[in-house]
Amino acid sequence: MSAAPQLPVSTGLSLADRAYEGIRDRLVMLDIRPGEPLNDDALAQELGTGRTPVREALKRLEGDRLVVAYPRRGTFATAVDITDLAHISEIRVELEPLAAARAARNATEADRAHLAVLARDTAHLQARVTDRRELLRRDVQVHREVYRAAGNPHLEDILVRQDNLATRIWCLFLDRIPAIAGHVEEHVGLLEAIVDGDEQKAARLALEHVVGFERAVRAVL
């Protein structure tokens, strides 16, 4: 089986931003394992950005709670602490519905066309995609597109950070949680509600999705 594709990379970024996104997504998907040291030189060579952008990215990632730096020891991927689940969910149950409703209200025509295509691509995943990590990447992609369509960069920034932390928890239990495809396919109704401009339905479905995520994780603890 060929390797699953990486998360989409934004275009038109500076070298520091490219390094940040590249390392961030490796941390989110646990390609860099919790507790693993991060080597500046190796990352710079892998990403083709140079050491300075990598170091700038690592400083930003420390603020995202994805890495931790220790004097004279280096920088390491943070541990995935399941006790953080309640704190993350507390934020997401309030802000995910807000972002979904804003997206339904504020998305541009171009946004709606893009989200309509994403909805069609997300439908019937169970019959087309068997790689669980690819399914999870698609889940992350949908969330990020909804946050972007909401049109509030501050809200987007908060939710991307919280979704990143939630995804790391999901990755930790990925082989134990059933029906991953069904969880991702829930986004079809959400995306369609946003495209249709139905704020209440979009908010309700976003809330149900977040609550379902926490329930699924707790069921395997």
Results as ranks from 00 to 15, higher is better:
A4P: 05
P5L: 05
Q6F: 15
S10G: 13
S10A: 15
G12Q: 07
G12F: 04
L13F: 10
A16I: 03
D17I: 14
D17C: 11
E21T: 11
G22M: 10
G22T: 12
I23T: 07
I23F: 11
I23R: 09
D31Q: 13
I32W: 06
L38I: 14
N39V: 10
D40T: 13
D41F: 15
L43R: 05
E46I: 05
E46N: 03
L47R: 03
G48K: 09
G48M: 10
G50Y: 08
P53D: 09
P53W: 12
V54G: 02
E56W: 11
R60C: 02
L61D: 01
G63F: 01
D64F: 10
D64A: 15
D64T: 08
V68P: 02
A69T: 15
A69I: 07
P71W: 01
R72T: 15
F76M: 07
F76C: 09
T78G: 13
I82C: 12
D84W: 08
L85V: 09
E90I: 11
I91V: 15
I91M: 11
P97L: 01
A99G: 04
R102Y: 08
A107Y: 00
R112K: 14
L115E: 00
A116E: 12
A116N: 13
A116M: 06
V117I: 14
L118N: 04
A119F: 15
R120G: 04
D121Q: 14
L125E: 02
L125V: 02
A127I: 10
V129F: 00
T130E: 06
R132S: 04
R133L: 08
E134C: 12
L135S: 03
L136Y: 05
D139N: 12
V140T: 08
V140F: 05
Y147L: 04
Y147Q: 09
R148F: 07
A149G: 03
A150I: 03
A150H: 02
G151S: 01
H154G: 00
H154I: 06
E156L: 09
D157F: 07
I158L: 12
Q162D: 10
D163Y: 04
N164W: 11
R168I: 08
R168D: 02
I169F: 07
L172S: 14
L174E: 08
I180T: 11
I180K: 08
I180R: 07
I180D: 02
G182E: 09
H183F: 14
H183Q: 13
G189F: 06
L191H: 06
L191C: 07
L191D: 01
V195L: 04
D198A: 05
E199G: 04
Q200V: 03
K201P: 00
A202V: 02
R204L: 03
L205E: 01
L207S: 00
L207Q: 00
V210R: 00
V210Q: 00
R215D: 12
R215C: 05
A216Q: 06
V217L: 12
R218C: 14
V220S: 03
